[in-house]
Design a protein around this nucleic acid. Structure first.
Lengths: 335, 335
DNA sequence: TTGAAAGCGATACCAT
DNA sequence: ATGGTATCGCTTTCAA
């Protein structure tokens, strides 16, 4: 079924069929009925490729991420989709999982979509710049080079406040940081906030983080490393909730009590953070909103054939629960 | 830059440009050089839409899943991509998260891709059948209606063996099953295997499962429910590793010892399962391979403009670790 | 209001 | 070996 066939069957021109099926232009009621009948009868739906070629738009958005597992990325995908779907755009994904040819693959993707959101730290800056020259690009959870737009959460201040809370309010001293600052801009900023809080209080932060990836398994490995040390730390500040849960299960599995023997904190406020025992102290981050905002910026720019502008920073919120030694707060604690 | 422009600049016809850029047909060295120079000089890359329209193929594959979080889906995406990318196909995704209009959205996707993999239990059978009439479709982790092809793991036998192990070898009696059989074909089969093992041994399984979703948070909720009961079960058989970890952290957080006070088992053998303390007894399932196989079936069928055939069942493997009461086995235990 | 025809960008057949 | 041209399916301008 093509426009031409429908046109022939309805005894009208293809132009009229197009007008009817798009609701554009003026068509007499008589013609409209004839065309709609034919469309209905033969189950015609305009071909996406033909339409896209004529319109010069793909009707698709790209999402590029490293391919790490976990709730974070699922939230991200869903937030992105929640904006793309209503705009009748499909979502293309690309997991670079840090392959060597990921730059090339991202550029290839750039030729199949109307715009791309790239998670910070997944591809090289030159590739990002070249991509931004062809289509609208927004960096999510990171900062683009030059004038590439970005959307991220407030990491630094939140992590500084959290660390300060542990150092000042709970009077903890030996803290460690779990996460690899090289791995992503987010972690890098959180590590910086962790260090800053120490400096502000005249304390010396640890020389280096425990550099592991962001999955739960990595948290378990970190716990092994931390709890084996002769001078066990008093608190473990994790780059995200998943690793924090890994550390938690590692600590509990060894018979340690949290927070009495060891304080643990996360970042993200994943659904499970409020439910575990002890509930996890963390920082709430609007992940879905981050991705949705990126999609909106891209769609707007694509509509105007322009370039998305600006650098958006969404607020985060400290969530104090039991795992840092605070009393349980029913308001933030659960369900 | 279009074929026509390059043709004009190189002083040849568009046909020759096409031949050169595709490496098809015979072209003299002289012409080839002229064309390649022009292409190089102006950075020409054939437009994907034009090419797709002419070829009548989208160069894209679809992946439809409910949108649950977790390592399972990331593995799935990556396995799918690992086959799609080498075939120069991009990957479209659709998270239905069980929306009411997901059938319509999947059918819409069917008009933008060359084939689709649908995770079992995400859309209705009629929609699946209509989709399969337009393009190659493979159901992953489930069974399609009628002749729709499918790829899944062996759930039933594995779960029967696991449950039998708990009942016979560890002489446990009061077991509960955590997972919602209505939610997915996988869970349904695992619940059936759990029941079957009981029946085979002349025991009465619990009347109903603890029907929660498949995320870690749901496992924590299930733990709360289970451990509150007056007659605490001896073992908790979970539909996947994520919920098992939720139950584990819930149990440990309440001061229970695993496996002495409570036995816990999972399903999937996620990376973290081997690392937690105690290491998690589970069933290994080739998730990436499942998705890769689905992609291969789809690509092959799309290439021949046929319909993917058959119903593939990949083997699973029981992995006994400490959480069920077995001694730690260095061979399956870690890293 | 309606229709004829010119694109959109690339491929491939059929002559030459 | 090379070029002209029809074709893929749809949209849109321009006439009528």
């Amino acid at each position: 079924m093509t426009v031409r066939e429908i046109a022939r069957l309805a005894g009208v021109s293809v132009a009229t069929v197009s007008r009817v099926s798009n609701g554009t232009g003026q068509v007499s009621e008589e013609m409209r009925r004839r065309v709609l009948d034919a469309i209905e009868k033969h189950g015609y739906r305009p071909d996406h490729l033909g339409r896209a070629l004529a319109a010069g738009r793909h009707g698709a958005l790209g999402l590029v991420f490293p391919g790490l597992s976990g709730p974070y990325f699922t939230e991200l995908i869903q937030g992105f989709e929640s904006e793309a779907v209503p705009s009748r755009s499909s979502v293309h994904i690309l997991c670079t999982h840090l392959r060597s040819d990921s730059d090339a693959q991202v550029l290839e993707m750039g030729r199949r979509v109307d715009g791309v959101a790239v998670i910070g730290g997944t591809i090289s800056d030159p590739a990002l710049i070249r991509l931004a020259e062809m289509i609208p690009v927004v960096v999510v959870a990171g900062q683009g080079p030059g004038s590439v737009a970005s959307v991220r959460a407030e990491n630094m201040a939140a992590m500084t406040a959290l660390t300060r809370h542990l150092l000042a309010d709970h009077e903890l001293r030996r803290l460690v940081f779990v996460g690899n600052p090289e791995g992503s801009p987010d972690v890098s900023q959180r590590w910086a906030g962790f260090q800053r809080a120490h400096h502000e209080l005249g304390l010396e932060p640890p020389a280096a983080p425990i550099a592991v990836a962001l999955q739960q398994a990595d948290g378990v490995l970190a716990a092994e490393q931390v709890l084996r040390a002769e001078a066990r730390p008093e608190g473990v500040v994790c780059a995200n909730d998943e690793t924090a849960l890994g550390v938690l299960v590692g600590a509990l599995g060894r018979g340690l009590r949290v927070p009495q023997d060891l304080v643990i904190t996360g970042f993200d406020d994943a659904p499970v953070a409020a439910l575990v025992t002890p509930a996890l102290t963390t920082v709430r981050q609007p992940v879905r909103e981050l991705a949705a905002e990126a999609a909106r910026l891209i769609l707007r720019a694509a509509g105007q054939r322009g370039t998305p502008a600006g650098s958006l920073v969404l607020p985060t919120e400290l969530v104090l629960r039991r795992s840092c030694g605070c009393p349980d707060d029913p308001a933030t604690g659960g369900s």
